[in-house]
Design a binder for these strands. Sequence first.
DNA 1: CCTATTAATCGTAATATTGCAATATATTAA
DNA 2: TTAATATATTGCAATATTACGATTAATAGG
Lengths: 110, 110
Amino acid sequence: MGLTKSEIFTSEQNEISSIAKVFGHPARVAILQHLFKIDSCICGDLVDEIGLAQPTISQHLKELKKIGLIKGNITGTSICYCIDKDNWSQMKTVLSVFLNQDINEKNNCC
Amino acid sequence: MGLTKSEIFTSEQNEISSIAKVFGHPARVAILQHLFKIDSCICGDLVDEIGLAQPTISQHLKELKKIGLIKGNITGTSICYCIDKDNWSQMKTVLSVFLNQDINEKNNCC
DNA sequence: CCTATTAATCGTAATATTGCAATATATTAA
DNA sequence: TTAATATATTGCAATATTACGATTAATAGG
């Protein structure tokens, strides 16, 4: 069906998977890395930096915006995107809880 | 096209997104959480625990196995799955580098 | 051998994702 | 106003994902 049955999972499980899904494409990983690397904001050079067409980059930016990891403000004809630091931190906290489950693990039969 | 252009990205970007993609479905998150929670191995009760059909669970387990996060050994007619601790740790390291990019961040124009 | 049990695989339908050309929108500059 | 520039949106084709019924394979117990 291609349709995830979100309703049978906890909100935590859905939140973790929603965040992870956004990271699940190399273009979006590359966009985020680039936004961190140049510690001022960039505008439209993501299209040159990454080798994808402008509508494709725009679509990926939309995904990142939707989940709140980036924000953009208009500067003339261009738009300046950057990481939303507060949301990035919050997201890290959610993922950390999931990723660090193993610290309390005792035995492992396999 | 539905086809990711992996070849234009770095191996690190592809690795991060591959891991994240596996976490990008709540059923796989739930499976991993359950495997951590019961600190002995489980067999086929994942189907009861999560509310999805057996072939669906089997398919998700396959994805998790493919990327190396879980392993299973045969015990009679059932198969005992558990987290691959070494690979889990390695995966955490890869993701941590990506998630902690913000610690060196200086300014933020937005 | 036959049957029950467990899990994988196959086949398929429904939906989602990716990518881009074409177009629309919005702002600046002349 | 017109042209140029930057980004978003639309529409569409190709491919991927999700889910499950039906079937298959493998093992255990009788």
